[in-house]
């Protein structure tokens, strides 16, 4: 475990070289929020009106949180990197090191997300306060639980994306698979909460990654309840085990197919 924490620390140290790049990338996030805030203002004739259980402020905070989770994740970059590692044979340089490749990818990417996450949380909260004027009623413990669910959500996302990237062992390009995954998460959990969809789809979404990687932490942030917190954390733990299992199986099967010539 110590080595993986050290990998996270090393990645954080490396990423501190890019702090200004991260701050500038926030401009894109800010524009996106601005568009969504205007959309909600258009949809809500009265800010206190409830649509599917959310008032306008809650909807805005929901999007702030899900977008922080989504934008700090950098999923496309991660999937592309793993896919490239597999296709170019670069993965071989990690195989003969005393760590698991999956653990290494997870740790380096968590280190990546950490620096970006801190900056985005600070700037995201500031943007929310400026636009909305208030902060959801949360105790310090509540905030801690939300943070834990956000970390677990990121871990699941990373593991799922690693498993998509590892598909490159069997097919040329895993890009289309990531495209489908990203659109599902974006449309079904990031821009709209699960409650916005028909009951039958809601039932499916409650068992899908959407529930654990984006909806869960954001829902707790805007409408905290201990019942919900327990069910989300439990679901996240189960998902981590499943996602790691998928990664492990794909990797174990794929690594025997490595076909590197040259040198």
């Amino acid at each position: 475990m110590r080595k993986y924490l050290f990998i996270i620390k090393t990645q954080i140290m490396s990423n501190l070289q890019y702090v200004f790049n991260i701050v500038f990338s926030f401009i894109g996030y800010f524009i996106l929020l601005f568009i969504l805030f205007n959309l909600w203002q258009y949809l809500y004739s009265d800010p206190n009106e409830l649509i599917n259980g959310y008032n306008m402020t809650q909807m805005s905070w929901y999007v702030i949180i899900t977008e922080i989770l989504w934008m700090t994740l950098g999923g496309r970059k991660l999937c592309h990197k793993i896919s490239q590692d597999v296709r170019s044979g670069n993965i071989t340089y990690n195989i003969n090191k005393p760590y698991s490749y999956i653990g290494y990818c997870l740790s380096t990417h968590l280190g990546d997300v950490f620096v970006k996450g801190l900056i985005y949380i600070f700037l995201g909260m500031l943007t929310g306060l400026l636009f909305l004027g208030s902060f959801p009623k949360l105790t310090l413990i509540n905030i801690l639980v939300v943070l834990i669910t956000a970390i677990l959500a990121t871990t699941i996302s990373i593991l799922l994306i690693i498993s998509i990237g590892l598909i490159s062992f069997f097919i040329e390009d895993s890009g289309p698979f990531y495209w489908i995954y990203s659109k599902i998460i974006l449309v079904l959990g990031t821009i709209f909460p699960i409650e916005y969809f028909p009951t039958i789809i809601q039932k499916i979404l409650n068992f899908s990654p959407v529930y654990v990687v984006s909806y869960g932490p954001a829902k707790l942030f805007v409408d905290f309840s201990w019942d919900k917190a327990v069910s989300i954390i439990l679901a996240q733990i189960i998902y981590i085990i499943i996602a790691y299992g998928i990664c492990y199986l794909i990797y174990k099967k794929g690594v025997k197919k490595i076909n590197v010539n040259g040198g």
């Binding site: 490396s14 070289q17 005393p98």
Partner: peptide, 21 residues
Amino acid sequence: EQLWTHLTPYDNFKFFGAIYD
């Protein structure tokens, strides 16, 4: 390259020390 390019050799060596326990 197996070194982390944004880090110093010293930090890299510490990293390798950690992964080899």
